[in-house]
Design a protein around this nucleic acid. Structure first.
Length: 599
RNA sequence: CGGGACGUAGCGCAGCCUGGUAGCGCACUUGCUUGGGGUGCAAGGGGUCGCGAGUUCAAAUCUCGCCGUCCCGACCA
């Protein structure tokens, strides 16, 4: 049993001026954490108890499907060179030198180290599948740490890696992680959604993120309340209401119209008396055609113009917005930037405001090198008689039909979904929320086993690379997300499973002998029944103790006051502030029942 | 990396413009008081005013440089 009078719980009446989001303010005020530097936090007594409990849950569940390792956070450069990520990780990786001048880094993730063990030790398909996990400190030199514990430079991650002989095996390992993650987050008392995430350009075939909705979140989640569809904004699609196409004008061939001074979609649409939905939005972009050099320490952080850049032109429906991540993914993960004025003139021979697809020699397909790429959003596929720029100042063109009057390099989904658009599955209105990512499961494929040369013999005696998955949970983010999800102006409340204590026993008057001994007795009794108890035995006024108890995240409180003469105490549930009188003799029984309840 | 703000006691802030004894609330210590929602009274302790230069008889205050933190953007396995 812990006595408040003897432990260190530095609660604050006021939050530091730096703190903006609820979890940051409250975790500092409740004495869970203190800041050491930008994105660097110390965990004090309560904070550590809570994260330790989270880790225990993670271990219990992960042990059902895998084996716990413990890998070094200090990594030699060579291992990261082997996968090519020494340079890819760029400035996000903390780097240092040892006394001999050798390069080292602090691990941001552990695919390399795990794959190194696999390539040295795994010999036969008979040893597969393997699921290896660890709970480890990760270091990432974030460009902008923020929001308290939400985006930090040092944090604890449960990361696991699966090795399977084939794709079916990976499917099974992936599914096991999915199910175990759900159990972990359920046990932590979180409300979360599992969303489809874009798996990036690195050959990953499937990826899902576990997200907790909160206004403090940095990610955007598109979801449907009716059918449960949920996806990252970078992946989400929507069904579109049909659009009535325009009738062809004249002979149906592209027809130039004079649109003096009309540049924006809205201006042109109004000028010509049509809807923006019948207009083409033309976006001129540039990509770098070259990957950063491997095996060097040169970190290309910025767009570098030069002969390697290549034009990419995107056509969207007039009222749609482009999603840059979708575009980048469609281009194999390359960085994209808007064209400069001179580049626009060079390609279109026209100033911006009148750009369109005609008169440019587009690449016929994605494989064709060097020629400018014309990507047309899927919402324009099958559409006819659209209006776009004429590549001539003060002129637009009618009767544009993709595939007929011009030929796209490819049709790709490139637009961002808007809230309220129909769900792609069921047609109900989609919602968009900000959310925090607490877990991520990812089918890696052969990226690391190939690049690092890990192989086993299959049943035919042939050398094959195992297929991998990687899976992560942010330990502190579970705590942070829980606080974001359950708080009010007086504090927050955690699920008993992850709260530093399950019950705080408050003696309302420590100078009253009867009250004090009753509080001691109840605390001891509950502790013997297996509960984590904090006894507030401080010589403080009741108001002070109540305020503190409400602040620090403990889900239940027992007030011991004047009613002890009646053998009665008061149990308060923090989440609802519901109060109930309970006989002292019935207190253990009462909590046995409460423990099953959601908080 | 671009834009903005801030840095004075553990926390929240004033003082700076107009240079001259470093202040307030909370917290802390001691005593009394009070005892169901941050009691009241009294007496105390605690500050390299982020760091370094410069101007000046004199710098928290003016000038320059640096560092740190936060916010917006860029970025984010």
């Amino acid at each position: 049993m812990h006595r408040w009078s003897q432990v260190f719980i530095p609660t604050l009446r006021e939050a530091p001026a730096d703190a903006e989001v609820a979890s940051h303010k409250l975790l500092v005020r409740a004495g869970y954490i203190r800041q050491l530097g930008a994105g660097i936090y110390s965990f004090l007594f309560l904070g550590n108890r809570s994260t330790q409990k989270i880790m225990r849950i993670v271990r219990e569940e992960m042990d059902k499907i895998g084996q716990e390792f413990y890998l070094p956070a200090l990594n030699p450069r060579e291992i990261w060179e082997a996968s090519g990520r020494w340079s890819v990780m760029g400035e996000n990786m903390f780097r240092l030198k040892d006394r001999k001048g050798a390069d080292l880094c602090l691990g941001m993730t552990h695919e390399e180290i795990m794959t190194d063990i696999a390539r040295k030790e795994l010999r036969s398909y008979k040893q597969l599948p393997q699921i290896w996990y660890q709970i480890q400190t990760k270091f990432r030199d974030e460009p902008r740490p923020k929001s308290g514990l939400l985006r930090v430079r040092q944090f604890t991650m449960k990361d696991s890696y699966s090795f399977d002989i084939d794709a079916a095996g990976l499917d099974a390992s992936y599914q096991k992680h999915h199910d175990v993650y759900c159990r972990i987050f359920d046990r932590c008392g979180l409300k979360y959604v599992v969303i489809d995430a874009h798996s990036g350009a690195m050959g990953g075939s499937q990826s899902q993120e576990f997200m907790v909705r909160t206004p403090a979140g940095e990610d955007l989640v598109v979801s449907c309340a009716q059918c449960g569809y949920a996806a990252n904004l970078e992946k989400a699609t929507s069904k579109l209401a049909p659009v009535e196409d325009l009738q062809p004008e004249g002979d149906g061939k592209p027809l130039e119209v004079h649109t003096p001074g009309q540049k924006t979609i809205e201006e042109v649409a109004r000028f010509l008396g049509v809807s923006p939905k019948n207009k083409i939005k033309t976006l001129a972009m540039m990509i770098s055609a070259e990957e950063p050099e491997r095996g060097t320490t040169r970190i290309p952080t910025k767009w570098e113009p030069g002969p390697v850049s290549r034009a990419v032109v995107v056509l969207l429906r007039g009222d749609h917005q482009m999603n840059e991540v979708k575009l980048s993914t469609a281009l194999g993960g390359k960085d994209v930037r808007p064209m400069q004025e001179e580049e626009i003139l060079a390609l279109f021979h026209s100033p911006a405001g009148y750009l369109g697809p005609l008169g440019v020699d587009w690449a016929k397909n994605m494989e064709e090198p060097r020629k400018p790429i014309l990507l047309v959003d899927k919402a324009l596929e099958e559409r006819v008689n659209l209006i776009g720029g004429a590549n001539k100042e003060n002129y637009h063109v009618k009767n544009l039909t993709p595939g007929k009057t011009f030929h796209p390099t490819a049709y790709v989904d490139l637009r961002s979904v808007n809230a309220g658009e129909p769900c792609p599955n069921c047609g109900a209105a989609l919602r968009i929320d900000t959310a925090v990512e607490i877990g991520h499961i990812f089918k890696l494929g052969y990226k690391y086993t190939h690049s690092m040369g890990a192989t086993v013999l299959d049943r035919n005696g042939k050398e094959v690379a195992p297929i991998m998955g990687s899976y992560g949970i942010g330990i502190e983010r579970i705590l942070t997300a829980a606080v974001e999800q359950n708080n009010d102006e007086n504090g927050f409340w955690l699920s008993p499973a992850i709260a530093p204590f399950e019950v705080v026993v408050v003696s309302t008057n420590s100078s009253d002998e009867k009250i004090r001994t009753a509080a001691e007795g109840i605390a001891r009794q509950l502790e013997e029944s297996g509960y984590d108890i904090l006894l507030d035995d401080r010589d403080e006024r009741p108001g002070v103790k109540f305020k503190d108890a409400d602040l620090v995240g403990i889900p239940f409180r027992i007030n011991i006051g004047k009613k002890v003469t009646d053998d009665t105490v008061e149990v308060v549930q923090r989440s609802t502030l519901h109060k109930e009188d309970v006989k002292i003799s019935a207190i253990s029984e009462y909590f046995k029942r409460l423990r099953q309840m959601p908080t």
